[in-house]
Design a protein around this nucleic acid. Structure first.
Lengths: 340, 340
DNA sequence: TTGAAAGCGCTAACAC
DNA sequence: GTGTTAGCGCTTTCAA
């Protein structure tokens, strides 16, 4: 196996000079540099990054740790968008991305700690889930690098990238009201996903209703865990209780698919119930091009988390201010109630 | 930072004994072992995997390298299923998984070589794409570890996990024929995806037609790159040329979605055109529960590739026999032509 | 069953 | 602009 010393010998310089050419070329005389580069080329030399990592105490790897199990993660298009955003940023910044989905979701946080403490990675991106406040305290106490996708605990001021869904649901509700809808359902995310966060989707919905002078009826709001199945079942139950419902806003695209399937199974179609999709994913736009949608900046969220962890690692900072991204609303349909 | 020496000192043993407790506990007296474990606990010691990697010349990381760009990869449900299969196997075997999607697809193979030569990873899982024969030769010459998802070149006998799509398309075609269909379209994968492989989807289709005494009409077969857009456009063009078509078989689920969208946009529905989906992905089953489908063992393919690369790395073998997985066909619909 | 010493391949200090 | 020396934290002879 060819090492830096083989290159040094062939180029008639010291190992350190080879190292300089590799890492800080500008500190080396051009002539020497060329000789070294030739030797590298001739020997097909590839620096051993593991050795460099040991010396530098830096692995140039970032961990992406998610709970919920692999069948959820890799099949959830939003999580894939987040992962994609992180991958793109982090790899452009010269880091490798380690994706880790622990077997049991309870292990996720320990896994993140393990990756970091073992110096496998320079920092991790994490999902808030049960028990994370303790883990974050440990990260902070030990000065380990982390960023969370969402807020972990009350008063958290730093190291998070959150999405505020208030604007999306507010404008969606407003739009539906302007089309004449009065009985508007909301398939909300479930309370267990809020962590210490406010119930933003509901807030936007309630505010828009209030401004229009429409009574807020709690039973028009159902909760689910972002899945197809929840979307299906919650709408079935919602429709049973409120057969006069004319529009529904969804918290996620998978829920939207479940809702649409339920609509078809009830013998209805998308003209009977006005649906607002939850994420505005490419696939949803293609499959159901006429659906209005809340947009969810998943890719950007992952990307920002990547940017944040890279800057934390590169600049040695322990904390950087948290970021809040906003949802938007895209109107695509003009079906009003009276037109039906 | 606490090292193995700190633990050794506290436990009043040598560093090597601590190392033994960590790696080969059985060679240490139980009493000593307990003392060491206590010290590890007390100091919250976490072995530095980078240092161990350097010494062992083994990183315990596997690379998963794909061409096509991140917006394709992370949005393609089949690739995610493969990734999931690889992740699950590889992480259960004690490896970390590095996911790498080069910016430009032309860089993918160099990226795989780089990861391996730099000792970032112990082995890589690769997609065959243009120019891979050369790269594989380099892997073989330098005795580097790799597995390909599909066959790279003529006569390749080892280190691949391939899927043979003949059975799926054969049974799908047979099924449609038994329902009375005679004009059956095939939205095939494009020739550039075959590599040195045979055109298996077409083979199964042609054979079933032949056995039923139905003429094979080449213009009923269209090609696409597995995408929604290709499914949409190819069916539009197919239907224009063959308005008497009554059934279509798809090479992938994304193409199936495009096809279905095209059917709707033409003012037809799923009773007019009998559709056979391409992959039998969970989402497809949920969205279109009545669709018959070819099954594509993507998860298993990824898993087997993981198993293969792990055994290559662990047992130091350069080559293991290739594996060929089969597609199947799941009949879910009984719409015959005469019933319409 | 345990330990001492050497060294994996690189880079940071410090010389020159 | 370049080289020498030491050492990152672990594991591997080899000896006791």
């Amino acid at each position: 196996m060819t090492t830096i010393y083989d290159v040094a010998k062939l180029a008639r310089v010291s190992a350190k000079t080879v190292s300089r050419v590799l890492n800080e070329s500008h500190l080396v005389a051009e002539e020497t540099r060329q000789r070294v580069l030739e030797a590298i080329e001739k020997l097909d030399y590839h620096p051993n990054v593991i050795a460099a990592s040991l010396k530098r105490n830096r692995s140039n790897m970032i961990g992406f740790v998610v709970p919920y199990g692999s069948e959820f993660v890799f099949q959830d298009p939003n999580m894939m968008e987040q992962l994609r955003g992180t991958h793109d940023y982090v790899s452009a910044a010269g880091f490798e991305l380690i994706v880790s989905v622990p077997r049991h979701k309870e292990d996720a946080l320990q896994e993140a700690l393990r990756l970091t403490k073992n110096r496998n990675v320079d920092g991790v991106i994490l999902y808030p889930s049960y028990g994370i406040d303790q883990i974050i305290k440990e990260f902070q106490a030990k000065n380990l690098r982390y960023v969370t996708l969402g807020i972990c605990f009350d008063q958290q001021k730093s190291n998070f990238v959150e999405v505020d869904q208030t604007p999306g649901s507010y404008f969606a509700t407003q739009h539906l009201i302007s089309l004449g809808h009065r009985r508007i359902g909301l398939l909300n995310k479930s309370a267990s996903f809020f962590m210490y966060n406010r119930n933003d989707l509901l807030e936007g919905y309630v505010q828009a209703l209030k401004e229009a002078g429409i009574a807020y009826i709690p039973s028009l709001v159902r909760e689910g865990n972002f899945t197809f199945e929840d979307g299906y079942e919650q709408f079935m139950s919602l429709y049973k209780e409120h057969p006069d419902i004319t529009a529904v806003i969804c918290a996620s695209d998978p829920m939207t698919y479940g809702l649409i399937r339920a609509i078809f199974d009830l013998g209805l179609n998308l003209d009977d119930i006005q649906v607002v999709a939850g994420d505005n994913l490419p696939l949803t736009q293609k499959l159901f091009p006429h659906l209005s949608s809340i947009t969810n900046p998943s890719y950007e969220q992952g990307r920002q988390a990547g940017r944040m962890i890279v800057s934390i690692v590169n600049e040695g900072r322990g904390e950087v201010p948290g970021i809040i991204l906003n949802t938007e609303f895209v109107a695509r349909s003009m079906h009003s109630v009276v037109n039906r």
